[in-house]
Computed example of a mutant assay.
Amino acid sequence: MSAMDEISRLFACTGDGIWAVDADYRIVLWNSAAEELLGYAASEAVGQRCHELLKGCTAEGKPFCKAGCAVMEQARRRQPVRCFDLLIAERTGTVRRVNISIVAVPTESDDRPIAALVHLFRPAQERPACPPLLRIRLLGRTEVQRADGSIVKGPLWRRAKVRALLAFLVLHRGQFVHRDAVIEALWPHLDYPAALRNLNTTVYNLR
């Protein structure tokens, strides 16, 4: 029995779509669930390179599937591959988001350690959008609204530098901000030790 026959037998009862590729990234197995999910008949898919057929991309639209892909390289080093989500092209051109699990079929050769890389896939679960924990308004008077609709108030919040620090951090969200940049923006006329003390106090009050 060939390796592909053995793989077909092992996964015959799964409801997942399956495609398997050889060490040259050519599709050698394409099951009926894959036909149903993606629209390609096995006769169309088998023999093609997976990255050329499916054009897999990350959720951000960055190409993921390619010759020398990270998944194959991990498998060649005999490292486990965690399941992951991928955007792939259906036969109609529609992009479908799927969740993929990998099973590597090894050989006994160090020169060619992978006989096949089996991809089991199913439609990915849509992640519910998380409601914002805070709503921050910067135009006009800086205001922070909690998820329950209440507005942040109090003597510490009324301090101008506390609100200014929050606005500065929001405008630089997702970026590394060195404390010297904050000091330069909020306390440009103070000497450094005094400005640093003010920064530490303001951070404490903002928390």
Rank of each mutant, 00 (worst) to 15 (best):
M4L: 13
D5L: 12
E6S: 14
R9E: 15
R9A: 15
L10Q: 11
F11V: 07
A12I: 07
G15M: 08
D24S: 14
D24I: 01
L29D: 04
A34P: 03
L37F: 09
L38P: 01
G39D: 00
E44R: 06
A45G: 04
G47V: 03
E52A: 11
E52Y: 03
E52T: 08
L53G: 02
K55N: 09
T58S: 14
E60C: 07
G61S: 09
K66V: 09
K66G: 02
G68L: 11
A70M: 11
M72A: 07
E73M: 13
F84I: 05
F84D: 02
F84E: 02
T92V: 02
T92D: 15
G93T: 03
T94S: 15
V95M: 15
V95L: 15
R96P: 01
S101T: 06
V103E: 03
E108N: 11
D111F: 10
R112L: 12
P113R: 04
L120H: 06
A124F: 09
R127I: 12
R127Q: 14
R127K: 14
A129Q: 14
C130T: 15
R135H: 13
R137N: 10
R141Q: 13
E143N: 04
E143T: 15
K153E: 15
R159T: 08
A160D: 08
V162W: 00
R163M: 11
A164T: 03
L166E: 10
L169C: 14
R173H: 13
A181N: 12
V182T: 07
A185S: 14
A185W: 02
W187P: 01
P188D: 05
L190F: 10
L190V: 00
Y192I: 00
L196T: 01
L196W: 03
L196A: 09
R197I: 02
N198P: 01
N200D: 11
N205L: 14
